[in-house]
Simulated assay, not measured.
Amino acid sequence: MVAALPYMIDTFVKLASIPSPSGNTAKAISFVAEELSKWNVSFQLANKGALLATLPGTNNDKHRLLTAHVDTLGAMVKEIKSNGRLKLAKIGGFNWNATEGEYCQIETSSGRIITGTILTSKASVHVYAQSGKEERTDELMEVRLDEKVTNAEEVKALGICVGDFVSFDPHVTVTETGFIKSRHLDDKASVAILLGVIKTIQEEAIELPFTTHFLISNNEEIGYGGNSNVPENTVEYLAVDMGAIGTGQTTDEYCVSICAKDSSGPYHYEFRKQLVKLAEENGLNYQVDIYPFYGSDASAALRAGHDIVHGLIGPGIDASHSHERTHTSSFENTAQLVMAYLQSKEMIV
């Protein structure tokens, strides 16, 4: 998998640069489809826009499914203010302070892109004495457009309307020390990792013991990305998503994180133990953690009523839903665990 690492990093950089807030992910899904087509991987598009790719295995009676999501946090135009600024509605769960000062772009219904900056309506410390103390709320935050506009009518003349999607500049940076700094590592890092794994399987003609599906979901940030399009014979369902880092967590930016429990409850115990065993057998840097405020495509699938064994792993990512960062070694450890799992001949049930 070391050979695939440059591909995975390069793919993440490209994918992170494609705006894809939940609800507006077609361009990112198209990018994934183009990559899969390079290796003659069969796939289909779901009615709600997700992509399901399939690699045949020796055993076609029991299937495995892995997910990663291409949708990201973002916003929508909630209101065009009388002063020519925009009020926003959040897409996904984040804090406004994490986007203050962020460059953004508005995509109009005609496809025109207009740039701006997310600020508070009381940004100037030379005018507002309490500027730094104001709570960052929906009412306080606004977009300053990079256009000569001073009122709502001038903004509307640009083609901007309520409901237009707003995406955040990812600021993708790969440092010489191997750190990857960017918004939307959650979960485009995992999408890139799965593409790297698929590339390796196809190019090296690796035989899989079980038919395996890869679901690239597009509504995870709003709770229902991976709850459908689960093929009938699927027994094991592994979500590949970010590992949460913070006080009390064991996960760091260099390991593959294995989730024992999140806000939806425990993940399948035997599945988790199998993932730990594979990580140890392959000498991987891994940690087991609980993510207290988190839900995944796998937990969404269980809520939808699918009778599956569910698990969750992913690269450790710092500052989730803010200015995120991970390391190339976390990409590598996660990819190796995914590959070890796909080649394992043990099925939980």
Rank of each mutant, 00 (worst) to 15 (best):
P170F: 03
D307G: 01
G57V: 04
N218Y: 01
A4I: 00
L145V: 12
R272M: 02
T173I: 13
M141R: 10
G92W: 07
S110I: 07
I201Q: 07
S320M: 10
A26N: 06
G311R: 02
I198E: 04
L119N: 13
R325F: 03
V70G: 00
K62I: 07
E280F: 04
R144G: 07
G283P: 02
A244D: 09
F331G: 03
K188Q: 00
S322L: 02
F94W: 10
V276Y: 06
C104P: 02
K87S: 14
V77Q: 09
R303D: 08
V41C: 06
G316F: 06
K27E: 13
E154N: 12
T334Y: 02
T250V: 10
K62N: 11
S182H: 08
N95K: 14
K188A: 01
G111F: 13
I18N: 00
D10P: 00
I160V: 08
L86Y: 09
H69G: 00
K133D: 12
T117M: 15
I201F: 05
L88V: 10
S257E: 07
K27G: 05
V2W: 09
I106T: 06
A340I: 04
I290G: 01
Y254K: 15
I113W: 02
I198K: 02
T115C: 13
K277P: 00
G159A: 08
V70C: 00
S322E: 11
N60M: 12
I258V: 02
P6R: 11
S182Y: 05
K273W: 01
L342H: 08
L275D: 00
P292H: 03
L51V: 04
P209L: 07
R136M: 12
F94S: 08
H310Q: 05
E221R: 03
T99E: 11
S344G: 05
V240P: 01
C255V: 12
K90T: 11
E270T: 05
R64P: 00
D169E: 15
S109C: 13
L284G: 00
N229H: 15
G248N: 01
G111S: 11
G23L: 08
K78S: 11
N218P: 03
E154C: 13
D186S: 03
S264L: 09
K27I: 04
F271Q: 02
M1H: 12
G49E: 04
G49M: 10
T150H: 14
